[in-house]
Design a protein around this nucleic acid. Structure first.
Length: 425
DNA sequence: TCTGGGGTCCTAGGACCC
DNA sequence: TCTGGGGTCCTAGGACCC
């Protein structure tokens, strides 16, 4: 059996952890640049504030009901997430935990009897809440897709399920599937949901389960759909992933706080993103062979038209590297080629791919080995990952960074910065 | 004024090889 | 008259996820 443990309104719960007076008060957390709402507490949801909707459109309701608003604070969420996942590892053993996202993990629960399962699930929930202060919901079923169905229902009706739901026999499974709309199945997005409803008149997960295998392979996107259909039918096909698998691409992209028109600011931003991406790369001991830089602009003279377009360039590096100064140099030359004076830029980004382990970097006959840079990067990373983020950085990333995104409502980084620690009077 | 940011997997089709 | 078949690798694009 497999369990999915999902933190309830994770970002909002993190904010509440350090501000208990927000308990019961509606809370929302905004995306980068304070653009959209990416987490809502139950109270905020009940006010009808939509998930992933633009902040400015919900502003009226937010002000009217005195909703607490936060810019996203990933230092805080990342740290709390780590604590939650550590707790799960302690309970069921490290090798049985697959961290799926910042707020969810799959747990491998083999060898429990049905009775034990429900009890263990409750225990997992209580321990996490007790140790970390973050409320979670647990769904347990024979497959990942079904565990997500269970979890969703557990969350939807807290009075009935108290945050824990186990699907352990054919009848409960079918009942649960009958209560689940196709659009709420994990793996069915907007596109397929529309297709299933309008073209095939399928509305519930149960109806989808009852279709036959050939049909599923043909109409749900080939092997992906087939796996999904099998999982709905109780056959596990989506494996628990090995913890140690490294990322295959690393991206750093951001909206600007305001439209940017000057080449120098574009260069600063691209250099900063390259520098961030290089850090992420070194953290997984990787080196990148391919780089893509893109700029997003909105050149419409009509101010009310939001219709951005993207210009991008790819580049194969002569030799795979993770050295910040090299990556910055390549990124800047791509940015210079892309930049068009007179355009209004909204966003820039860099994507590193074709990642290889840095130990296996193939030498290139035509480039010089640059050994001292490795030492330099180690020193920089040690300083920056220590007490002060960004204590040491490259000049190209700029000093003032006026293009930086807006974060008008960010809470203090309580758990990761010494000077922002919570104080008790 | 105003709509994250970061990932994954799969497929189709072209280039190239024997 | 007539021009295979199977394989690999790469890329672009689509769909999905949180």
């Amino acid at each position: 059996m497999v369990a999915i443990v999902d933190c309830n309104s994770f970002y909002c719960s993190c904010e509440r952890l350090f501000q208990p007076r927000l308990h019961k008060r509606p809370v929302v957390v905004l995306s980068n640049n304070d653009g959209c709402i990416i987490s809502r507490s139950d109270e905020a949801r009940q006010l009808g504030i939509p998930m992933a909707g633009p902040y400015y459109m919900a502003k009226e309701v937010i002000e009217k009901h005195d909703v607490a608003v936060f810019s996203s604070n990933y230092n805080l969420y990342g740290d709390i997430s780590r604590r939650v996942m550590e707790t799960l590892k302690q309970i069921v053993g490290e090798t049985n935990v697959e961290v799926y996202s910042i707020d969810e993990s799959f747990l491998h629960l083999d060898g429990y009897s049905p009775k034990q399962l429900a009890k263990s699930a409750r225990q997992i929930k209580e321990t996490v809440e007790h140790w970390t202060g973050i409320p979670v919901s647990v769904g347990i079923a024979p497959t990942k897709v079904l565990s997500k169905v269970a979890n969703r229902l557990a969350k939807k009706d807290p009075k009935k399920y108290k945050g824990v739901f186990v699907l352990d026999n054919p009848q409960t499974i079918d009942d649960a599937l009958a209560q689940t709309a196709v659009k709420d199945i994990w793996g069915i997005g907007r596109r397929y949901a529309e297709k299933l409803e309008s073209q095939f008149n399928l509305h519930t997960a149960l109806a989808l389960k009852k279709m036959n295998e050939t049909w599923a392979g043909k109409n749900l996107g080939g092997v992906v759909g087939l796996r999904l259909w099998r999982e709905l039918n109780g056959e596990p096909c989506i494996e628990l992933k090995d913890q140690l698998i490294k990322k295959k691409m690393i991206a750093c992209t951001r909206m600007f706080g305001r439209p940017v028109t000057s080449a120098s600011e574009i260069r600063e931003a691209v250099a900063s993103y390259a520098s961030r991406a290089a850090e992420k790369l070194r953290r997984q001991s990787g080196a990148a062979k391919m780089m893509e830089v893109f700029l997003v602009k909105n050149d419409h003279t009509d101010l009310y038209t939001y219709n951005p377009s993207t210009d991008a360039l790819k580049f194969i590096l002569p030799e795979a590297t993770s050295a910040t100064h090299q990556l910055i140099n390549y990124a800047l030359s791509l940015a210079d080629k892309l930049f068009n004076p007179g355009s209004r830029y909204l966003k820039a980004g860099i994507i590193l791919s074709q990642l290889v382990p840095d130990k296996e970097v193939q030498g290139n006959l035509f480039t010089q080995k640059n050994k001292p840079s490795v030492k330099l990067m180690e020193v920089m990373d040690n300083i920056n990952w220590g007490i002060h983020k960004e204590a040491v950085h490259f000049g190209a990333t700029g000093l003032h960074q006026k293009w930086q995104m807006k974060q008008e409502h960010r809470s203090p980084r309580y758990s990761t910065k010494w000077d922002e620690l919570k104080t008790v009077k």
